[in-house]
Design a protein around this nucleic acid. Structure first.
Lengths: 149, 149
DNA sequence: ATTTATGCAAAACTTTTGCATGGGA
DNA sequence: TCCCATGCAAAAGTTTTGCATAAAT
């Protein structure tokens, strides 16, 4: 029937020699629908809605695999109990997190090309991606925003 | 007796209104001795050696507090079971992680001053620090390193 | 036809909590 | 002295595992 997944991630799976299974496709679908920033518990809940026959274990296995493949990256946002996964589009991800309200803002331009090249040259390594997180206080949480003096 | 802790972090604790306790000092000592990159289990083990009367719960409470204060930051290195904490010296931390052998290399120069300023201006936020992680394959793990054809 | 991946449910760990007590300020 | 922080041990969660079965190639 319809063979209409064109997610580039499916190709990543295939070319790395992994099978394209229903569980993996479901997790991938959830991650893409959320456009990043989702906890393992969130993924489990959403996958359950898509297909209740998929077990938790497979979700964790898929999250681990996708992390290894560089498709996603676990990070800590508020609690240390469970990580939040972000999409590594093109191998990289950049965001600002408000330390007060935990809201986040993703942005594109990081200007890290030069640093990347320097590191590769200096250390003789091959860099495949990066995660850049800024911490701060957002406009709404800044003193004087809406509850100020 | 000797009052010889000059760790700037102790001042951070005090000025934020938190008490300087034995448990917190022990955790701080371990973090500083390790110079970053240590798991919660590692901290618990080291603290146990320093002072067996300190309980696990206090270690976790201290790690949470230090994270809130921006002294450390949890991140995932290899397993998703437990985070690895890195020191946020001066509010920031930069490293490269080898995705093959999990070794890491910290570096100083990130060239993010301009981006930081741009974000503050554009979003009307106040940025206090950042974490920059590069992922790649280190020289030793690159094909042709020591077992290569 | 093979071999990888899955689901299930239990096991293994890590982190959190409640509460009486100890110890900073 | 007052109140925050601690230790203990149990509770709450999350993540992992073993194994027979399903399913992708």
């Amino acid at each position: 029937m319809s063979n209409a997944h064109h997610s580039p991630h499916v190709e990543v799976l295939k070319s790395a020699g992994y099978r394209v299974t229903r569980a993996r496709l479901a997790v991938l679908a959830v991650l893409e629908a959320e456009q990043g920033h989702i906890t393992s518990a969130g993924v489990i809940a959403q996958v359950e809605r898509i297909d209740p026959t998929i077990g938790r274990a497979s979700v964790f296995r898929a999250l681990d695999l996708f992390t290894q493949l560089g498709i996603i990256r676990p990070t800590y946002i508020d609690t240390s109990l469970t990580p939040t996964y972000v999409m590594m589009r093109g191998g990289h991800h950049h965001h600002v997190i408000c330390t007060a309200c935990k809201s986040f803002f993703e942005f594109e331009d990081c200007g890290l090309e030069a640093v990347t090249g320097n590191l590769e040259r200096t250390l003789g390594i091959k860099i495949s991606g990066h995660l850049l997180e800024f911490f701060g206080v957002c406009a709404d949480c800044l003193p004087g925003a809406s509850g100020g003096s």
